[in-house]
Amino acid sequence: MTRATTAGTPSAGWTPDQPIVRLVDVHKAFGTFEVLKGISFDVRKGEVICIIGPSGSGKSTLIRCVNALVPVTAGTIQVEGITVTDPRLDKLALRRKVGMVFQQYNLFPHKTALQNVMMAPLHVLGQDRREVEARARALLAKVRLAGKEGAYPGELSGGQQQRVAIARSLAMRPDVMLFDEVTAALDPETVKEVLVTIRELAEEGMTCMLVTHEMNFARDVADHIYFTDRGVIVEHGPPATFFASAQDARTRRFLSQVL
């Protein structure tokens, strides 16, 4: 395995044919409560993986570990050769590579849709304003929100806000996108418009890690499905085999409840 020589900078050893995200025996405990009990898997570039499982099984924690919002207790996570679990991690370098979309959108309510998309490239990357604005407008058009540039988050529906949040993440030109139950807080009518946006992203070859309760969507869009329960991966596989012939009793019980 290649290791980053200096924290944060992608190791020269990483090439696109290697896994873009690699988790090795990741443990996470909050106090004495162990949420993740040894999770290992790889995500290849351009792959879309879905993490499913009952609530409280550590799915959100797992995805938050990948961009260092939550520090792990033990184990290793690497993203494009950056060791996320290194204490000397350069968080900025990591977060340029990894975008994240939240369940509650978490847009900045005091900025318009366009400003929300432009903020991070301007403040964090210090890029040229004109170039950033052109890119932001293109991204809003891409998520079908052309014409809503001047609207404040409070004036947009949940689905529209979530698409702004996706555009905001994409503005940092990430290589990996994390989606944390992004449709869970939405009205049923607006779920679809967000899922369409994610599907288009996946079809363009973006590497995506999703935590979701939308089983049909997972079946449709995922290359690989991981089922977690009580902090471990119980079962995984490509959707066709996973949904058709789950082996484990826990998986089967879960699927019978949600399908």
């Binding site: 961009n67 919002l69 968080k91 900025l92 977060r95 340029r96 975008g99 994240m100 939240f102 509650q104 978490n106 847009l107 900045f108 309510p109 903020m119 991070a120 403040h123 964090v124 990357l125 949040a165 905001r168 993440s169 940092m172």
Partner: peptide, 14 residues
Amino acid sequence: PKTTIEAAEALGYT
């Protein structure tokens, strides 16, 4: 809200 600050962090804000 804490989550709003988290979103800023996820975008690379110090």
